[in-house]
Write a protein that binds this DNA or RNA. Structure first.
Length: 808
DNA sequence: ACTAAGATAGTTTTT
DNA sequence: CTATCTTAGT
C-alpha cells in the first residue's frame, strides 16, 4: 500500500459520478494540458508503435513490449493521455503492477508527465495492495473485519506448524514449509479447500491435505488475518458472490492497465477477468503490457499462457508490438535474438536498433578454470573499465543462483571494490525488525496471537514453551485472543509464581502501550516500546558481531516510521512493501540474480556461470523438462538484454557444488549464440591480488555491511592479510605454470566455444593417458568434439574439455 | 535455558 | 563446503 492513501473513501462521490465538476488537482492540470492545440508534448518523441499504443485507448489491447523498447514509457504516457484527454478521472483508472517498485516508478513518471504529484491515482498499485484496498472495504463479505492483519511468511509457517501438531502429525515428516508451499500453489491457481484436486489433497499428511488447508483458512478467519494469497482470493470470491458490487467496480474502472502481463498467475488472471469482462457490447478498455520472452516466473505460478491467449480471451483485441530497442547495441540484440529464437511457443518478436556503431563490441565469451579465476578475472575487467572512467554503477554481475555471489563478494572485498548485493535478505525480513514489528503489531492489534507468540519471551523473561502452551490452550478453549487469555490466567493459579509474574509484567506493559497509542506520537511510542520491553537493551548487551548492525537497523526502522501518520498506517505499509530503497549514492558494482535483474539496465553486464547444470539449471530441466529449459533460456535472454554496451559471458570448467569439485560443460546456450555477434574474449591470466590491501584502512569501504562477504571480511580482518595473499599467490603460480596449452588457449578458437557435436576433432585419442589438474591421471574413454570422457584413477569418470588436460 | 555437537539440505522470489 | 536447524547435554 502506498502511504497516506488509506483515507480515500469508498466510491468518492466525485468520481463515481464523473459529471460532477469536483476534480482533483491532477485532473485539473490534465484538463489544462488538453487545451494545447497541437499534439501534446507528452506524445512527442514516441515512435509510431508507441504512439499507437498510447492512443488506442478504447477496447482490449495487448502491447508486446520487447526488452528496452520503452514499455514503461508507453504505460505512463498512456495514463497521462487518458487523463489529459479527459477520458477518465484519475480514480477511474485501475493500473496494476507486480512490484511496489514498479508502482512507485509509474507514479513518479506520471507525475512528471502531468506535472506535479499524483495524489489522485488511488488504484495504481500492485495486485496485492489493490486487493487489500478492496478487501478492507468489503471485509465483512469475506468474513473478516476491516482491520484484518496481513501475515508474512514467518507467521504463516508458525501457524501451519501448530496446525500440523494439533492434528497429531509428525512435523518432521510433514514439514510446515512444504505445506505452506502447497497452499501458495493452490492459491496461485485460485483454488480453495473445496476445489483443490483430490490427488493434491491426499499428497500431504496421510491424505489430510484438504482438512489441513481448511483448518488453516478457519484459523486465519478467527485470527482476523489474511495471507498474501487471500488478498487475491477473497476479492475473487467476493466479486463472484456479489455481482452488484462487481458491477460498481465495472462502472468505476473505465480503464484498466496491467504491467508485466506475462507474469500473471491464474488467480490474478481470474481477478482481472472479473473486473475486465463486461456485458456484450460494452467496451473493455483493458491494456496489458508484457513480453512473453521475459516470462521467468513460471515456477511460482505465472502462466505464460495468459499472454499467449490474450486475443482469444478478449475478442477484437488489438496487438501492438514494440520491437524498436533503445537500449542495446546491435551485437547484443543479435545475440539475444538468436538465442531466444530457439524457444517454441512464442508470440514472436525481433528486436532491432537503428544504432550502428562500428566501435560497438561484440558479446564476449570467456572461459575460466574455476569459479575463483572467474571472479578474479571479472574483478580485473571491472577495474579496467573503471580505469577508463566507467562508473561502477553502470556495471552488474548477474548470476543464476545466489551461491555464485559469494566468490565475487570475496574477491571484491579483497580488492576493495565497492559492490552492492541486490535482492538478498530484505530489511523487513531481518530478525530484529520482525521482533520489533511484533511488538508494534500486538500493541495495535491485541488479537494478533502470532505476534504475541513471537515476542512473549523476547527478551528472555522466563516464559518457556510450557507457559506459552498454557496461554495458548486457555485462549483456544475460550476462543479469545492470547493476550486476553494471559490477562485472565494471571488471576488463576495455573501458573507458577515466576512465569506468572513475568506474564503479568508483559501484559501490563502492552496494556499501557495500547493506552498510549492515542496520545503519544507513534515514533516516540515505538521507541518507548523497544526500550521498556528491554528489547534494545538485549542487543546492547549482545557481544556478537551483528549486534551493532541490528541496533542500527532498529533506529532505521523508527526513522522510517516518521513518514507515516500512525503506527497502524506504518504496519499496513510494511506488510505489503517488504523492500526498502538501497542507498544509490555510492558508486558500486551490482551483484544480483538474473531474476532480480529484470527491468534493469547497465552499460556493462557480466554473466558468469554459463555451464550445463547451473545454467540451464539441472533442476529446472529435471522438474519441468522442455518448459523448464525454455524458461532458463528466457532467463538468459533477460540477462543479455540488460546490457547496453558491453556484455561478458563466462563459463568455468570446474565448479564446487555442495562442497565437492565438479567438472562442468559449457552451457548449451553458448552454442545458440550467433558467431557474427559474439567473440571469444581474451582471458588474461594475471596477477590480481598483489595490490595493496584495503583491510588496513581505518574506515572500511562502504559495502552494505549485512552481506555475507562483508561479514567474512570483518571476521578475517585481523589475520586475513598475510594468509590470504599467501595462498592466493601460491595459487597463481600454479595457474601460470600450466603454460600455453592451458585452459584458455585452445579451449575456444574460431568456432564458438565448445560445440557439443563439433566436427573438429581433438588432438587426443581414445586410450590416451592424460593428466588433469584437479582429477589427476586418467585414461580417455571417449571423445566428442573437444569434450573428452576420461576415467580418472582417483576421481572416476568425468567429462572435461580437452583444453584442461595434457598428455600424462 | 543456553551451548555445542549432529543432521540436513542446498535455484530462482514477490506480495 | 557451509549455513541453518535440531537435538542432546550441561
Amino acid at each position: 500500500m502506498i502511504q497516506g492513501e488509506d483515507n480515500i473513501p469508498f466510491f468518492d462521490e466525485d468520481d463515481a459520478e464523473p459529471a460532477k465538476p469536483v476534480r482533483s488537482s491532477l485532473a485539473q492540470r490534465a484538463m489544462a494540458a488538453r487545451r494545447v492545440p497541437d499534439a501534446p508534448d507528452y506524445l512527442s518523441g514516441l515512435n509510431p508503435e508507441q504512439r499507437d499504443a498510447v492512443e488506442t485507448t478504447e477496447g482490449p489491447l495487448l502491447v508486446l513490449a520487447g526488452a528496452g523498447t520503452g514499455k514503461t514509457r508507453v504505460l505512463t504516457t498512456r495514463i497521462a493521455h487518458i487523463l489529459a484527454s479527459a477520458r477518465a478521472y484519475p480514480s477511474q483508472i485501475l493500473a496494476v503492477t507486480f512490484t511496489n517498485k514498479a508502482a512507485r516508478e509509474m507514479k513518479e513518471r506520471i507525475g512528471v508527465l502531468v506535472g506535479g504529484a499524483v495524489e489522485g491515482m488511488p488504484w495504481l498499485g500492485t495486485f496485492h495492495s489493490i486487493g487489500v484496498k478492496l478487501l478492507r472495504r468489503h471485509a465483512e463479505l469475506a468474513g473478516l473485519r476491516s482491520d484484518f492483519t496481513i501475515l508474512d511468511t514467518d507467521d504463516v509457517l508458525r501457524l501451519i506448524k501448530q496446525l500440523i501438531q494439533a492434528e497429531g502429525l509428525d512435523d518432521k515428516r510433514w514439514p510446515a514449509r512444504q505445506f505452506a508451499g502447497m497452499i501458495d500453489n493452490w492459491k496461485n491457481k485460485g483454488l480453495t479447500p473445496k476445489t483443490i484436486a483430490e490427488g493434491d489433497a491426499r499428497a500431504f499428511a496421510n491424505g489430510k491435505g484438504r482438512e489441513l488447508y481448511q483448518a488453516y483458512q478457519d484459523r486465519l478467519k478467527t485470527l482476523n488475518a489474511c495471507d498474501f494469497g487471500d488478498l487475491l482470493l477473497h476479492p475473487i470470491e467476493l466479486f463472484k458472490k456479489n455481482p452488484d458490487i462487481l458491477k460498481e467496480y465495472h462502472k468505476r474502472f473505465r480503464y484498466i492497465l496491467v504491467d508485466e502481463y506475462q507474469d500473471t498467475n491464474t488467480a490474478q488472471y481470474m481477478w482481472l477477468r472479473l473486473l475486465a469482462q463486461r456485458p456484450e457490447g460494452e467496451a473493455v478498455n483493458l491494456c496489458c503490457v508484457g513480453d512473453d520472452d521475459q516470462s521467468i516466473y513460471g515456477w511460482r505460478g505465472a502462466e505464460v499462457d495468459n499472454i499467449l491467449r490474450f486475443e482469444k480471451d478478449f475478442r477484437g483485441a488489438k496487438v501492438i508490438r514494440l520491437e524498436r530497442n533503445y537500449r542495446s547495441t546491435a551485437h547484443i540484440l543479435g545475440a539475444a535474438g538468436n538465442l531466444i529464437a530457439h524457444n517454441e511457443g512464442r508470440l514472436g518478436k525481433t528486436l532491432f536498433t537503428e544504432r550502428a556503431d562500428p566501435d560497438d563490441e561484440k558479446v564476449q565469451v570467456h572461459a575460466a578454470w574455476d569459479s575463483e579465476e572467474e571472479a578474479r578475472a571479472v574483478g580485473e575487467e571491472i577495474e579496467q573499465y573503471q580505469k577508463r572512467g566507467e562508473a561502477l554503477n553502470e556495471m552488474a554481475i548477474l548470476v543464476r543462483a545466489s551461491f555464485q555471489m559469494r566468490e565475487f563478494e570475496d574477491r571484491f572485498v579483497t580488492l576493495g571494490l565497492n559492490y552492492r548485493v541486490i535482492g538478498g535478505p530484505r530489511f523487513y525480513e531481518r530478525l530484529e525488525i520482525r521482533d520489533a514489528m511484533a511488538f508494534f503489531r500486538l500493541t495495535c492489534q491485541p488479537a494478533d496471537d502470532l505476534a504475541l507468540e513471537r515476542i512473549i519471551n523476547t527478551p528472555k523473561r522466563g516464559l518457556g514453551d510450557a507457559s506459552v502452551r498454557k496461554v495458548h490452550d486457555y485462549a483456544r478453549a475460550r476462543d479469545i485472543p492470547m493476550l486476553a487469555a494471559a490477562r485472565e490466567l494471571i488471576d488463576t493459579d495455573e501458573l507458577k509464581p515466576k512465569p506468572r509474574k513475568a506474564l503479568f509484567d508483559v501484559v501490563t506493559q502492552f496494556e499501557r502501550w495500547q493506552e498510549l497509542l492515542e496520545s503519544t506520537p507513534h515514533t516516540e511510542l515505538a521507541e518507548q516500546i523497544l526500550d521498556e520491553s528491554g528489547y534494545t537493551e538485549m542487543w546492547q548487551n549482545d557481544r556478537s558481531a551483528e549486534a551493532p548492525g541490528r541496533l542500527e537497523n532498529l533506529k532505521e526502522l523508527i526513522r522510517s516510521m516518521e513518514g507515516f501518520e500512525s503506527m497502524r498506517g506504518f504496519l499496513e505499509h510494511v506488510s505489503l512493501v517488504m523492500d526498502v530503497d538501497q542507498n544509490e549514492e555510492m558508486d558500486a558494482v551490482s551483484i544480483m540474480t538474473l531474476h532480480s535483474a529484470k527491468g534493469l539496465e547497465f552499460k556493462t553486464v557480466f554473466l558468469p556461470g554459463w555451464e550445463e547444470g547451473l545454467f540451464p539449471h539441472q533442476r529446472a530441466l529435471d522438474e519441468s523438462g522442455r518448459a523448464g529449459l525454455e524458461e532458463e533460456r528466457r532467463l538468459a535472454y533477460v540477462g543479455l538484454t540488460r546490457a547496453k554496451r558491453n556484455c561478458h559471458i563466462w563459463f568455468v570448467s570446474n565448479r564446487r557444488i555442495h562442497g565437492l569439485w565438479q567438472s562442468t560443460m559449457p552451457s548449451r546456450f553458448l552454442d545458440e549464440l550467433p558467431e557474427d555477434h559474439v567473440e571469444v574474449g581474451e582471458t588474461e591470466v594475471s596477477y590480481g591480488g598483489y595490490g595493496q590491501s584495503r583491510f588496513d584502512r581505518a574506515e572500511p569501504f562502504s559495502n552494505t555491511y549485512a552481506t555475507p562477504g562483508w561479514k567474512r571480511a570483518q571476521t578475517n580482518r585481523t589475520s586475513a592479510t598475510r594468509d590470504n595473499w599467501g595462498t592466493r599467490s601460491g595459487h597463481q603460480v600454479e595457474r601460470i605454470g600450466y603454460g600455453e596449452s592451458g585452459p584458455r588457449g585452445q579451449t575456444i578458437e574460431g568456432e564458438l566455444v565448445a560445440r557439443s557435436t563439433g566436427e573438429q576433432s581433438s588432438a587426443f585419442h581414445v586410450g590416451d593417458r592424460v593428466f588433469h589438474m584437479k582429477f589427476g591421471n586418467g585414461n580417455i574413454s571417449g571423445i566428442e568434439g573437444n569434450k573428452l570422457t576420461i576415467d580418472f584413477d582417483k576421481a572416476g569418470r568425468k567429462r572435461v574439455l580437452d583444453g584442461f588436460v595434457k598428455p600424462a
